[in-house]
Each structure stands twice: as C-alpha cells, then as structure tokens.
Design a protein around this nucleic acid. Structure first.
Lengths: 235, 235
DNA sequence: TTCTTGACCGACCGGCCGGTCGATATGCCA
DNA sequence: TGGCATATCGACCGGCCGGTCGGTCAAGAA
C-alpha cells in the first residue's frame, strides 16, 4: 500500500531510509537477523520473510548479500556514532565527567545491543579487513573526545600526567564492552554478583580507575575528591 | 605392559588424543577452521580435507557437526584452563603479583589466539546457552584465583578494602581481552600508538589499576611503591 | 583359516542457499 | 493515450551443505 507519510504522497529520496519503505524494512530485518545469527546463518529467505517482501525484491535493492550486509553495517556505524553527544558532559571536574561517560557509554551499549553485537562480531570475524573502517566510523570520534577529556584533566593538574590518556580510554571502553559481552558468563561466577547490574559495575569501575586499588598511604582526604562528589552535588 | 618404546608399534589408547591419530587430526583441523571461520562457514568437507580423511570418516568418529564442535570447544576449554598455573605467582607484594598476572594473562591470550577467538565467538553467539559451561570450564578457576590474590592483598592491608575484588578482576581481564580482540581497530586510532605492543599496554594497565588516574594530593612516595619496583629489582 | 569388529572410503541424497529470470503492477512524463 | 522506469513478485537454477550407505581392508579371536 502507498500512503507513506501522513496524507502526503511524495517520492521519498533514498537519503533517509524510512522504516515504512520496503528498502528500510529490508535493512531493519537484515540488521536484526545479522546481529542475532551472524552473516551465514541469516539467510536471504529469512530476511525477506521478516521484511514482508519477496527475496527477489531484496536483490532489486541490493546486488548481493554482501552489499546488503555492508549497508547494514554502515547504518549501524552511523547510529552508533550519532548517539555520542550526550555522553560527553562539559561540566564538573574530571572525575565526575569520567563517571558520567562510563555510565552513559555502558547504557548506549545496551540501548543499541543489536548494533553493538553486530560490530563486535564484525571485529572478531573480519578485524584485519575492516579494522580501519570500524575505527573511523564507530569509535573514532568517540574515542578522540574521551581522550580529550582525559588530557584536559591532566593539563589542569587534576589527573596524573604519567599515564597515557589513550590507554585509560581503552581500559575504560574495554571494561564496559567486556562486561556487555560476557554478562552471560559472569552471571555464573560465584564472586560476580554484580553481573546483573551494569549500573553498579560502572560505578565501581569508575572508582577503581580514579583511585586505583592500592591502599592510600597516609592521608586519605585526597581520595575523597572523587568519593564525595559521587554523593553530594553542589558545584 | 610397559615396553612400548622406540621400534615397537603398540596400539595407542584413545585416552590421549594424539596428533598422528586420525581422530586427533580431525579435532585439530576442526579447531583451526572453526576458530578462523566460525561454525557455519567451516564446512565438513573442508575439515575433512584439512585433516586428510574422508568426510565419512568424520561421521564415523562424531555423530554430527554439532558434536564435533562441542568436542573442539571442550578441548579448547581444557587447554585454556590448564595453562593457568604459571600465571599465578605466590611471591612478591600484591602490586607485583598483579602486574605479573596481567602480563601473563595477555600472553596466554595471544599464545592460544585461535582458542581465544573460538571462545569469544561462542560467547558472542551462544552466550545465554553456554554461559554456564564457559564460566565453569574456561575462566572459573582462573577468575577465582585472581580474586583470591586480590582478597589476600586486602586482608594484608595493602589493597583498598572498599573495592570489590571481583570487579577488579573483571576490569583486568576485560581490559586484556578487549585489547586482544580490538587490536586491529585500535591500530587505526591516532592516539593509540600502543596498539601493536601488548606488553607496553599491560604495564600501563597495571599502573592505572594500581594507582588510579587521579592526581595524588600531597606525598607521592607511597605511589612509588608500585612505580619503583617496576623499575628496580633489589628487595 | 574363518569370523568379527572397527577404521576408513567413494559415491550419493535431499534440502537449502545465494542468486536469476521473466511477468505484472504502478506511477510519471509526453 | 502510450511509453518507460521502477517496485514487486513467483518460480526457478546450479551448487554446496550436512549427512547416509554400502563396501573395503586390516587386525585380532576362534
């Protein structure tokens, strides 16, 4: 049936792939199945059925299965990147900004879990081939801004200057991603009661990254810089 | 029953799956192909060809493709677990033991990279189904001993008591695993010059976990507890 | 020697896969 | 109105897949 938009029947340009469009339905169905079952297991027949189109119709819009997969991947990259803005908060001290970033990042991983899985799978299967593309389109900007936050904290003398900000960013993102992909495993470890509570995990992760695990030697009032403003809130 | 030394052709019991044995060759070929290409893409024909046996022979030893895959997975789990011993060192202060563990863990990830990939893929594709098995057979013991190290450090008053050791262990393992699976991506990030140097990464990771990223307030001689014994060596 | 057993093989099967081929239906421009 | 591009479809194809079948061969038991 036609009536795509409300009342208006305009030829929608393919720049914005809408959901009502058959092409959009195909992309959506493909994204779901690719991320759930992987490239091989997601058959074109299944994608066509889920998108309520004929298989031949898919091949009218995409030349091959690989081209469809690439389109899905690109779209996923765009989705993942564009949701970055509210992860970076420009107020508060570095500790608070870091805590906010970690929590927001974890939340995004779960909010777009199917996209996240798709990208993780792609990294695992075709890392060498598509590493560059994923670096530029998925986490490039994200990563650079996080490194920027950390570097600024160093310049202001609030963060240690003798650690590489990029390593900190990697550890941070890695700890979140690992939690995301291993939650099903962690749930069965006796010591990991936090496995079902990403929020609690991110808070503890932030604390560890900020303060470290070594016992503070003499005065512990300084470590409270991070501990207290996790509680109180006056600027 | 002893003298089956050089020169004698004795019937090798199947308890130790040797490499010369056809069954062992099948398992080895399957492990390689499964870990490189995934379950679907690794065809029984290809496995048979690589193992220099007929496809029918595989079905003589394993009832289905799934059973073969399970056998490969179990074997991988065993390999992964049994290499744990030298990762845990019982000498030195907690900081040094932690640093050693991180480095050894990363090294194992790379030394058995195909097994690592296999398990990561399994976690991604069949997490809910096989989470328990992976938890018990792959990282269970490993994880528990690492948590033990940390808890002992807490009891001795050398590590902060207000952090969950299991969270620290998760962050540590996660940071290593993420580095392993994302190295192809990190290599293309401008800030991540460490992407090609796992050793350097583990050292910086240990430093961050031990000391945190916050600037120490007054006396920094205590943080040197970890920083110096990474350099010097005299007790 | 004969019988039995298990490792092993070439050839084959039904089924699903990615992909193709006309045919139709629906606008849009003249 | 007629043409023309686009969207969509059912039916079909060759090929590969997981899996099966009947048979061979060698070694031990009798």
């Amino acid at each position: 049936m036609g009536s795509d938009m409300a009342g208006k029947t305009s030829p929608v340009p393919p720049l914005a792939p809408s959901v009502t469009d058959a092409c959009g339905r195909i992309l959506e169905a493909a994204a779901k199945l690719f991320s759930e079952q992987g490239y091989d297991a997601a058959s074109m027949n299944a994608i066509a059925e889920r998108a309520n189109v004929s298989k031949a119709n898919i091949y009218h819009h995409f030349r091959t299965k690989d081209e469809l997969y690439l389109a899905v991947l690109k779209r996923a990259c765009r989705e993942h990147t564009h949701l970055l803005d509210d992860m970076v908060r420009n107020t508060g001290n570095p500790a608070e900004r870091l805590r906010h970033f970690i929590a927001a990042h974890m939340q995004k991983l779960y909010a777009q879990s199917s996209v996240t899985r798709l990208i993780l799978r792609e990294l695992l299967e075709n890392g060498p081939r598509r590493g560059r593309q994923l670096a530029e389109e998925v986490i490039g900007e994200n990563f650079a801004r996080l490194v920027g936050i950390l570097r600024e904290g160093q310049l202001r003398g609030e963060l240690r200057a003798d650690v590489d900000p990029a390593v900190v960013a990697t550890v941070l993102v890695g700890a979140n991603v690992f939690f995301f992909q291993s939650a099903d495993l962690l749930r069965h470890l006796p010591d990991a009661g936090f496995a079902a509570d990403p929020k609690r995990y991110t808070e503890m992760l932030a604390l560890i990254l900020l303060q470290g695990v070594l016992q503070a030697p003499v005065g512990n009032d300084a470590t409270n810089t991070a501990a207290t403003d996790s509680q109180g809130g006056s600027p």
